[in-house]
């Protein structure tokens, strides 16, 4: 969908007050994986606030990316319990599989690899999130299967 139309739709759905900003931003991320400058400007216009205010808000939240991201955003928990349970191995496995480093996106724009803080599954660490999906008790084997599944999933 064209970005302007998407934002118009979201503004109609959630409203045009400042307190509707975050649901709208989330809606854009849901569709586009990130919020482009064009999108931020359009949101600012719809909500009658300044573009700097939209930008300031986006950059506060880890999930409101302002840079392009892949179709599947992988977030690996780097907090203490997962750290103890083998976070390093998870990251190196993912880096090997995807041939990118933490913070990067694959050339084909399918995967982005990010770190995140405690995901609330410490008893089943190490843990990662792929978009909204949680994967617990990760092992290199498990990770290979998960990634293979997403790689197959062409659409």
């Amino acid at each position: 969908m064209e970005i302007k139309a998407l934002i118009f739709k979201l503004a109609e759905k959630y409203g045009r007050k400042r307190e509707n900003l975050i649901p709208i931003l989330q809606g854009v991320v849901q569709e586009e994986r990130y919020i482009s400058d064009e999108a931020m400007v359009e949101i600012a216009r719809q909500l009658d606030i300044s573009a700097a205010q939209v930008y300031g808000t986006c950059t506060f939240y880890s999930f409101l990316n302002t840079k392009p991201k892949g179709k599947y955003i992988i977030r690996v928990c780097e907090t203490i319990v997962c750290d103890m349970r083998g976070k390093k191995e998870v990251i190196s496995t993912l880096e090997d599989l995807l041939k990118i480093k933490i913070g990067e996106t694959t050339h084909n724009k399918r995967f982005s690899l990010l770190k995140t803080e405690c995901l609330g599954w410490c008893h089943k660490g190490p843990v990662m999130l792929v978009n909204d999906e949680v994967y617990t008790e990760l092992t290199p084997e498990k990770i290979r299967n998960i990634i293979a599944k997403y790689k197959e999933n062409i659409n």
Partner: peptide
């Protein structure tokens, strides 16, 4: 001008 980023990276910034 608005505040952008958070924590150690927090700073005063213009749009983008």
């Amino acid at each position: 001008l608005d505040v952008a980023y958070r924590g150690k990276d927090m700073k005063i910034s213009t749009f983008m």
